[in-house]
Amino acid sequence: MDFLDVLFLGCAALAVVLAVLTVSVRNAVTAAFTLVAMFFPVAAIFLALSATFLAVIQVLVYAGAIMVLFTFVIMMINPRREEAVEPKEPDFRLAAAVFAALFFLATTHAVTTYALSDDYETAAPAPAGEAGASGGAKAAAPAPAPAAKVDGKWGGPKEIGEALFNRDQGFTFQFEAVSVLILVAAVGAVVLAKRRL
């Protein structure tokens, strides 16, 4: 266990706890607060994965723009009535919980069974018995993944920009498509929310 491992464990625990709080607290303002707080450990994990630019963008867009919008709307409409309402029928909640748990278990199975750390083209399902016997994600990976390079240069703005705007194989079209989408969304939001145009 080195520094990054400790960081990952702490951030993961924090993120999970805050996410659980977000979906479980009654008050929408508290939920917004815990969600904002959840974005920070996730951004820290991005940072540890040496995606520096994305970590900052995560804080800037999610915490700084999207959640500000949420907070603003919540405070503006101030839905106090919600706190008195009792939650949905217990059997439905149980079904949802079962669904979520099943999804998680399926993903866990997939992650632990297939040797992701190897070259994915040649990855074959590991013998199921072995993965079960040795128990858990750790043992199923034959060789530990090469640790992410933490020199701060990998996910920097330069690399992302090069990939994004490369003349031949870049994502220029997709970029433009997304920008048109955002423009449409902005205009649409104004049209929807404004009382009189």
Binding site: F53, V56, L60, A63, G64, A65, G156, P157
Partner: peptide, 12 residues
């Protein structure tokens, strides 16, 4: 290397 965006993020 993303210092500028970092500052903007914190201000927001």
């Amino acid at each position: 290397d993303v210092g500028l965006v970092f500052v903007v993020a914190l201000t927001s």
